Computed example of a mutant assay.
Amino acid sequence: MTYSLKETFPQGVRALRGAPGTPSGSATTPDPGALAAKVRTLAPSMTRSMQRVAEALAGDPAGCAHLTVTALAVRTGTSEATVVRTARLLGYPGYRDLRLALAALAAQQATGAPPAVTADIAVDDPLGDVVTKLALEEQQTLADTAAQLDMTQLEAAVGALAGARRIDVYGIGASGLVAQDLAQKLLRIGLIAHAHSDPHLAVTNAVQLRAGDVAVAVTHSGSTHDVVEPLRAAFDRGATTLAITGRPDGTVTQYADLVLTTSCSRESELRPAAMSSRTSQLLVVDCLFIGVAQRTYDEAAPALSASYEALAHRHAPRRRDGD
């Protein structure tokens, strides 16, 4: 049982993306529950004035929901234009839509939802506190990523991978480990997938791709040159391209037909961004893998069984001749 991307999305995957350089799915107003997640994800890439607006929105959604655009600009020491730009960057067509989302978010929080954890790990923290803080941060990162995942983009990505002739995955450093994880998972269900962490090999492989192939770039910053370049080469040759990134406005999205945005907790001295970005990237990888396995179950199930059997046989005790 195979699935064609054209059958799933007759209008074509690039039609889902919108204008070049525009983050995929940006025309869809985000769910109110994703607002706080988007603020945490996008704040590091905002200007300082936009950050002040975003921090006010996340810190007091109920209060901000009652403010006019002029009143919010006064409260944050910015301008009306900055407030509107912030609203649009967060995915809302205008300030009115943002106020509705703020009111809905305030109502959700009133039901007793736990607040976001922002305490940094200190150098003199007891190890037990470190475990607690890390666990809570990981939970928040996963919840934020799940809240802001664009289901249309995810569905299209699953369809593209399920029907791909060949899949290349690009990633460097911590993102390279995530790229390897995705490739090996897809290999185990019978797909032809390879991860490339060497930038030269990535580009030389990318230029061999064509329509019907899929290229995946994993980059939290969205601007890692050694990941952007092979994705650009694959995009230019007609392959379907997917970016898994924490920066939907990053360079990599210019060459991505599909964009899946990950969240990341605030970076600190003892907790670099690579730690939490890896957690959210692995969640997206697992969602892709399960989705593809469901789509191709008739082929995936026997392939998984064969890989389990091969590994079990490899690790079984060897018997001597005559035993």
Rank of each mutant, 00 (worst) to 15 (best):
Q108H: 15
A62G: 13
R88N: 02
T68N: 08
R85C: 10
L102E: 07
Y95R: 01
A101V: 10
R75Q: 08
T68E: 10
G94R: 12
G77Q: 03
A65C: 09
G77D: 01
Q109W: 02
Q108N: 09
A87M: 07
T82E: 01
R99S: 10
T70N: 13
T78F: 00
H66N: 11
Y95M: 07
E80D: 13
E80C: 00
Q108C: 00
L89P: 04
T82P: 00
R96Q: 12
L90P: 10
G77P: 02
H66I: 04
A81E: 09
A73K: 04
L102V: 09
L105G: 02
L100Y: 14
L102N: 08
A101G: 08
S79C: 06
A107M: 09
A65N: 04
L98T: 04
P93R: 15
L72W: 06
A101Y: 05
Q108L: 11
E80P: 07
A71Y: 06
Q108D: 13
R85S: 12
T86C: 15
D97R: 12
L102A: 04
T70P: 00
L89C: 14
S79M: 00
G91P: 10
P61K: 05
G94A: 14
G94P: 01
L98C: 12
G63C: 03
L102G: 03
A110M: 13
L98S: 05
R96S: 10
T76V: 01
E80Q: 15
L89Q: 05
L72Q: 02
Q108K: 04
L100V: 13
V69M: 13
E80I: 07
R99V: 05
G63R: 15
G63N: 13
L89H: 06
A107P: 03
A101I: 06
A101H: 10
Y92R: 11
T68D: 11
C64L: 14
L67M: 15
L100R: 10
A71S: 15
P61A: 01
R96P: 00
A104Q: 07
S79V: 05
A104K: 01
V74T: 06
A62N: 11
A65I: 09
A107N: 11
L105C: 07
L105T: 12
A87E: 04
V74H: 00
A101W: 03
L90E: 05
V83Q: 01
V74G: 04
L105A: 09
R96F: 14
A81V: 11
L72A: 01
T86L: 09
S79A: 02
T82W: 02
V83M: 03
T68G: 15
Y95S: 09
A107V: 14
V84F: 03
A73S: 09
C64F: 11
A101S: 11
C64P: 09
T86S: 14
